[in-house]
Simulated assay, not measured.
Amino acid sequence: MKSLPIAFGLMGLASAAAADVTVQSCDRDVTFDKVPTAAISNDVNLTEMMLVLGLADKMVGYTGISGWKTLDEDMRSGVEELPELSAKYPSKEVLIGADADFFFAGWNYGMKVGGEVTPESLAPFGIDVYELTESCIHVGDKPKASLDDMYNDLLNLGKIFDVEDKAAALVDGYKAELAAFQETLETGDPLRVFVYDSGEDKPFTAGLYAMPTALIEAAGGTNVMDDFEKSWGTVNWEAVVEKNPEVVVIVNYGNVTAEEKRAFMMNNPAFAELDAVKNDRFVTLEYVDATPGPRNIKAVKTLSEAFWSK
């Protein structure tokens, strides 16, 4: 077979490398004409998505972790050569100052609707934004929370960073792992489950569009707040008492420990008649397990064991 001229071959490679990639990010179509090389991720779960895809060498840093959370050993080793550019939400100046060309964040995961850091405010500085799928309910409609939200983000990151095969293999692996586990799971009627994130006067919890709803359902339960048409938000304790959860899932992070949250509910007379309190049925998920990311399948297994172990 006659070989192509070297010049033509190089041109072909160049054009292939420069081929545009378009992904849907919430209600936007975002087109990339090259692979980002100076990416920043916000929050621990989004950063883990970047790391599990092997993208540390395409990053210049991360934001929004140490201000609220601590890193476990696996996470620390993954980001040890990357700087944390902001302990909490980054300012526009932080992102511009790092010469970033890509920001992986979400609404209430590094960006706020109407805030100074948005896809529109960063665009003039050459910083493209990909938004966490779970968070899209803040800027438009979306279906209820699903593990597909997490899968979608990994697959889109794979397209953006030209690691589609790796992303597809990860997602296929997660799906197969979950299916195999669920085949062995013996359940009864779906358990009534409440997610206790934080707050004493009023609880901050997971609603219809938050990942714990999907995790609970995959484990054989139902989120008692799945009629709360938000992702994460505040409700009244009266609503929780009315729903009478059989299990409480505590999200562990911040200054108040999971044990302190459990003690608050166990020792409060207002909750004495809740089935979860009477039977002391509490299960803890770390923040990084309860939010969209690579640890979601592990979270389903943790919940299942708490729900159905005898």
Results as ranks from 00 to 15, higher is better:
L4D: 12
M11K: 06
A14R: 08
A19T: 12
D20I: 06
D29A: 14
V35M: 10
P36T: 12
A38W: 01
E48W: 03
G54L: 12
G54R: 11
V60Q: 01
D74W: 08
E80I: 14
E84D: 06
K88F: 06
S91L: 07
E93G: 09
A100G: 07
A100R: 01
A100F: 03
F102T: 02
F104S: 02
G110R: 03
M111S: 01
G126T: 07
Y130M: 11
G140R: 11
D149A: 06
L154W: 01
N156V: 07
L157E: 00
L157N: 00
K159M: 12
T184E: 15
E186W: 04
T187Y: 04
R192N: 14
V193I: 08
F194S: 08
F194L: 08
V195L: 04
D197Q: 05
A206Q: 02
L208G: 02
A214C: 09
E217T: 13
T222G: 04
D227L: 05
F228M: 06
E229M: 10
N236D: 15
E238C: 05
V241T: 07
N252P: 01
N255F: 04
A270T: 13
E273C: 05
F282Y: 11
T284E: 10
L285F: 07
E286T: 12
Y287L: 13
D289K: 07
G293T: 10
R295C: 09
E305P: 00
W308K: 04
S309G: 05
